[in-house]
């Protein structure tokens, strides 16, 4: 899981052009869409594309999106759970 979290951090920085952010700056447990990274609704869509493109898993509903995209850790848990099933 830790390895996936670190991989996701790098992918998020690249996908969202977060030039001034390093993986170390991202707290895996912190909410992605509040103060932390200052992400917006377009970033949310880009993260949905990232999960599908890199890992092949679709986030099906807005509600699921809220849960999955809450933090880097929740994204990693979603991917890990899908990989197990």
């Amino acid at each position: 899981m830790d390895e996936l979290i670190e991989k996701l951090k790098v992918e998020i920085i690249e996908a969202l052009s977060l030039e001034e952010i390093t993986p170390a700056d991202i707290d895996a447990n912190a909410p992605l869409f509040l103060d932390g990274l200052g992400l917006d609704s377009i970033d949310a869509l880009e993260l949905i594309v990232l999960v599908e493109k890199k890992y092949g898993y679709k986030i099906q509903t807005a509600e699921e999106g809220k849960t999955v995209l809450y933090s880097v850790k929740s994204m990693a848990e979603f991917i890990t759970n899908r990989q197990k099933s």
Binding site: S17, I42, L45, E46, V49
Partner: peptide, 9 residues
């Protein structure tokens, strides 16, 4: 086929 929302805008 992965249309990029951040490019589209």
């Amino acid at each position: 086929y992965f249309p990029s929302p951040s490019v589209f805008v």
